[in-house]
Write a protein that binds this DNA or RNA. Structure first.
Lengths: 199, 199, 199, 199
DNA sequence: TATGAATGAGCATTCATTCAT
DNA sequence: AATGAATGAATGCTCATTCAT
């Protein structure tokens, strides 16, 4: 089914173009025609791939979320499990490189939208559940490997890790000049080492 | 002589009406006429007090930020200085009651906007500076009182506290049903106790 | 009746303020509040002296027209009647000084308005009639004094003089840098000498 | 492929519709929707062809000016050069027919606007330069052909011709009933014969 | 599939006018 | 007589969506 493949690729391209435009101009200033131009298409073409603007925006959000999830989960079995490893993986998610910063900007835009859009809030929540589950099971694995204090409740620890990532990521996204990669990483490292006490 | 009007009070009322409308409908759906109605006024009246919509929005943001700052600083000298006290004060800032939740929703809306509005980003940053300074000096006072480990760098600790508050607050704002007041407080309590080790 | 005198003086002041504002900002940008400020009054006060904005504008136009008429007629009996004298008087009306330029700008604004405002067109016409009558009788006097060729029809000559003044005045008003006082005067002088042949 | 549209033709149509509306209602009362209706379009469609209202208005002015220029220059080489010919051509420009009267009304509207709009004043000036250059070179040709006194300075003569046309045109535009075509033409004829003395 | 011209509802903004004081 | 707060109609502009080609 070559057509389908092309179709999906085009959808991806357009959604990524939307991510780019939102990241640059903000979600309010992201007009359909801007996305079309960034994707080398026309507004009419976009309607072939997305029901309406909202569907396009949702696809853009999903791209960003999937990318973050993928980084969090990246090669978890290959590396030997360790606290250092978990922290390193968490740091990867921070807005420490060009693409990550853009993704965080897009993410922030959607947070603002979710305030008044229950459907979006629900979607956001489902992403958080996935994030949390991934971190929670990593904590459990570390406990089983004897590398983390058993006193810790994995779910609550995962919430703390998520909160730390979010807290630093939001701040760094809005003030990138004061928050270069190193500062973000050392700040997150300090927080996570406090939150995740080794036995 | 025309009707005596307390100009500043009217400005405050309208800005508060904007906070309310933004908190309920989101910043994108907050039309001038909605704010006018919420304030018991007309759109034309709003232009007596604000240059344009953006000025009104900024005033709304400032109200929210001032309220948070005021809570953070509330009666710092009256209470005996203690870690428990600092944590309790931090918890006060979380979206644990009706007004606080609304303020956090408004805050989130502006975070999304700041992504593409450098002026707004600058304003946000200045608020963070104030938040951080307040927390940082509280940490210092605790250290001077011998209630906090001197190993902690006050500024970095303040950043951690801010990140924890932000991380939990954002999550709770978008998913209030899963995050009742108690869960927020215990989560923040756990994080801050880990972050701020007593000697 | 001191009140009446004050009243009339205030009306004059406000109308002159309107002339000033129109001359500076154009009639489209002349807001009531601008006129009020220029007159050291408030919009509410203006409504005490003028029924509505249109009445104020009309008063402003009348001030300008009266000033021009006054200059054209100035001291006609004192000076010995001569063609040179008529030409000199015509030159006085050109936009050759600060106040005259402002009056011409106001005049031009009203010409543009008269296009779609029959009442204004009628008023403009009445001013032209006065201008023309004044010039026409001057021409007649010159003919009676034997200083102008009797072949000339005074009315038609007056129309020519008016057209020359208008043509040069309009051009100089819109391009004052290219049309300093001397150029205007020499141009008008050349035209009028051709139009008004001495015997 | 979308409907094939002659973009330039549509632009012309809309600009001409603007000329018509301005000529009928005046520039202040010319709303975008009026122009849209006159052009058989919608306000939204107009923005496809013009950045904003001002751009549309400018295009309308240009149409009028180009039409006048075209009439002044019409077939200058075909006709044998003569003073009669020049005068006849000047008369053509006067508001002596339906379309010409409308163009003059539009022209007057823009003169009023140019008072407070330096960009418009600059454009107006450039048109006058073109008018003047055309007339000036015609005068020169007449002098070279020995049909006009060499004592005349072509540029100054052109200014006089322009002033005469403007002066009569403005008056006739605002008072068309008193200034039928014949009166305009004979008045201009008289002025130009005086201004342009044959050898 | 794709184009892009056209639509039309929605909204901020302007400002003359009103009126309680 | 004067103030100036408030009104509310008017209007230019934006932009997602539609649809003829």
């Amino acid at each position: 089914m070559p057509k389908k493949i092309d179709h999906e690729a085009r959808r991806r391209d357009i959604a990524e173009a939307a991510v780019q435009v939102i990241g640059e101009q903000g979600i309010d200033n992201a007009r359909l025609i801007d996305v079309a131009r960034a994707a080398g298409a026309t507004t009419g073409a976009i309607t072939h791939y997305f029901d309406d603007k909202n569907a396009l925006l949702l696809a853009a959000l999903d791209h960003v979320a999937q990318r973050i999830l993928h980084e969090l989960h990246a090669a978890p079995t290959q590396n030997p499990i360790s606290v250092d490893n978990l922290i390193a993986r968490a740091c990867t998610v921070l807005p420490i490189h060009e693409e990550g910063m853009r993704d965080w900007r897009v993410w922030l835009c959607f947070l603002g939208r979710a305030v008044a859009d229950t459907a979006l809030a629900r979607i956001n929540k489902s992403y958080y559940v996935e994030f949390r589950d991934g971190i929670s099971s990593a904590v459990e694995r570390l406990q089983n490997a004897g590398k983390l204090d058993n006193i810790i409740e994995p779910g609550a620890a995962a919430d703390s890790v998520l909160a730390a990532i979010d807290g630093i990521g939001v701040r760094a996204t809005l003030d990138p000049e004061e928050w270069p990669a190193e500062r973000q990483k050392s700040q997150l490292d300090a927080m996570l080492r406090a939150i995740l006490p080794t036995r």
